Computed example of a mutant assay.
Amino acid sequence: MRKLLLVLGILVSSFLSLRAQTSTLETDLLKEKTNAFTKKQWLFPALCITYGAIGLIQDSPVNKADQRVNSEVVSRSLAPRRFDDYLQYAPVAAVYGLNAVGIKGKSSFRKRTTVWATSMAIMGTTVGLTKKGTARLRPDGSARTSFPSGHTATAFVSAEFMRQEYWDVSPWYGIAGYAAATLTGAMRVRNNRHWVSDVVAGAGVGILSVRLAYWAYPWLERTLYGRKKRPGGRIVLPQLGVPTIASIAPFYNGRQAGLTLRIKL
């Protein structure tokens, strides 16, 4: 079990190391100065996913490590503990709870809810398709849906979401979220439901899903909520992408409000 905790502990330590190296980048991202999705943002989750994918190769070093850890878990005949079913959602619940009691994160309710839903959609689609494509047998032999760990992916979506929202308030919020996510992954291995490489890959998928969602939010805001402001105070309704001969648009210039009618002759 010590080997398992050592491997999973790398997730937290690597996260903290990466956070220190990219503080300038993340400050820019948090303040929305840039919408670029840079290499440093996907590097760590990509490494996690790559490590997990190597575990799919029979007799690879990662696969052999999976077998050794699983043998130790099975030999101890540990009774299942199912609190990981709930722990995976703890960080996201904390985000909404903290906002409710007045400890505000960086985003409005609409933005954080949109980002959360988008992250879960990206993660769920990725995990579902990958499970079906790899058909890896679970350690307990119950099903061929082992890779990657969905519980762990969900937990790291929650953890990265909490880190993004509250790191500027206090880094301890982000650390607590990642600790809960790491414990969730450890419990999936302890309960003989996943190999370690499944868990590491799930962590990568979860983190990457959140970063993609924040990156895509400006486009999602325009697409989902349908209005954007232009200089001068005018509010222009989005174009529907079909030819029109007439259009009506509201306007407000700071003193006057009304409707503008345009007819194409």
Rank of each mutant, 00 (worst) to 15 (best):
L25Y: 09
P61C: 02
A93I: 15
P91C: 07
L16K: 12
R136F: 05
W42I: 11
S149G: 08
T182R: 06
R138A: 00
T152H: 03
L208S: 05
S209H: 03
W42H: 02
Y225V: 08
I103R: 03
G233D: 08
R222A: 11
S75I: 07
K33Y: 06
I175N: 01
K264P: 01
Q58A: 10
S142N: 07
S146I: 06
A257E: 13
G105M: 02
K64C: 00
G102W: 02
V189H: 03
K132S: 11
W215D: 08
L261E: 11
S170E: 11
A179T: 14
I263W: 14
A246K: 07
I49G: 00
Y51R: 10
M120G: 04
P80T: 14
K229V: 14
A53R: 02
W219P: 01
K33S: 11
V169P: 03
Y89E: 07
Y173N: 02
V115F: 04
S71N: 14
L265S: 10
T126G: 06
Y86L: 14
R222M: 10
T50H: 00
E32S: 13
G204T: 01
T27F: 11
M187W: 00
G141N: 01
A79W: 02
A90F: 12
A186S: 04
A153E: 05
R138C: 08
T118G: 10
L137P: 05
T113Q: 12
L220T: 05
D85E: 15
E221G: 03
I245W: 14
A93P: 00
S14Y: 06
F156A: 04
Q164I: 05
L8K: 04
W167N: 03
L43F: 11
S170L: 08
G206L: 04
P250G: 09
T113K: 10
A203K: 00
L183N: 03
K229R: 14
T125M: 09
V242P: 06
P45S: 01
Y166V: 00
F15T: 07
E32T: 08
V236P: 02
L129K: 11
G124P: 06
M187N: 00
A257Q: 12
M187A: 02
W167F: 14
